[in-house]
Write a protein that binds this DNA or RNA. Structure first.
Length: 267
DNA sequence: ATGGTTGAGCATCAA
């Protein structure tokens, strides 16, 4: 049975609902995970989603900042959320779903960006990011009996050399510093997670999912980073049939600075 | 080395 799953940092779900609708109509994923919805739960624009069959929604938002949501055509059970670092941010939500008799735990993350200065002694936001990553090291892809796992989201770290436009020039730039990239690799190793996008498209091929608003001519300069990820437990690896980075979405009218990342599994 | 843009919500802060 085919399963299509997408993740997208939307940078305000209310402002960009027309783009969400366009994406859903054209790509028709079974499940869409959003980050940076910037929207309180009671103001979430559910109607256009219900009209398209995404009637199963695990929404965890807050006013003004952060916010994550799982929007699904497949029934979701056991919605849970975890307050990483105990600071009250809406940065994680998870749910269970079933495909062809297999139970899958889906985690949707929005990891803190970490500010500009990669030194926790002078930048508390960077310390918060490192603490968040440390806490993620306890998340095991095989942690629940008889359950596969998928982890998606804006992890705000580009872990490999070819996840950025220039490895050397970004080594001291937050998102690609060694303490972050090694930390994220440790999250993957300890939790036995498989990076499905790199599994399909190994290094040294460049992959980007984000281009800054601050550089004019993003397309020509192409100074991107791979900040958005889809991981799974190892058992799902052989079921991966395709991956896609929807680069064209960066060129849509009033775009997010992130683009959708999609996997297809045959389960 | 610096500055560049966007969004929430109304002065800045976060990214």
């Amino acid at each position: 049975m085919p399963l299509t799953l997408a993740t997208w940092n939307i940078n305000s779900v209310r402002l960009r609902m027309p783009l969400v609708e366009k994406f859903l109509d054209q790509w028709q994923p079974d499940i869409l995970c959003l980050q940076e919805t910037k929207c309180p739960n009671d103001q979430f624009p559910s109607s256009p989603l219900n009209a398209r069959g995404y009637v199963h929604q695990a929404i965890h938002g807050q006013k003004g900042y952060h916010g994550v949501a799982i929007l699904s055509k497949i029934p979701l059970d056991d919605h849970t959320k975890r307050d990483y670092c105990n600071v009250g941010d809406s940065r994680h939500v998870s749910a269970l779903f079933k495909v062809n008799g297999r139970t899958i735990r889906l985690h949707n993350f929005y990891v803190p960006a970490g500010g500009d200065e990669p030194d926790r002694a002078i930048n508390p936001k960077f310390g918060h990011k490192l603490d968040f990553i440390e806490e993620m090291k306890h998340l095991d892809a095989e942690g629940e009996a008889e359950t596969s796992s998928i982890l998606v989201g804006d992890l705000n770290i580009a872990p490999y050399e070819n996840d950025v436009w220039s490895h050397k020039q970004l080594l001291k730039i937050v998102s690609h510093t060694p303490v972050e990239t090694e930390g994220l690799k440790e999250v993957m190793a300890r939790g036995k997670w498989l990076d499905l996008i790199r599994h399909r498209t190994p290094e040294p091929e460049k992959i980007y999912t984000w281009w800054s608003y601050r550089s004019a001519n993003w397309q020509l300069a192409d100074k991107g980073r791979r900040l958005d990820h889809i991981w799974s437990s190892a058992d799902l690896g052989p079921h991966l049939t395709s991956t896609e980075i929807v680069r064209e979405a960066r060129g849509w009218d009033r775009p997010s600075d992130h683009v959708p990342v999609i996997i297809k599994l045959d389960i």
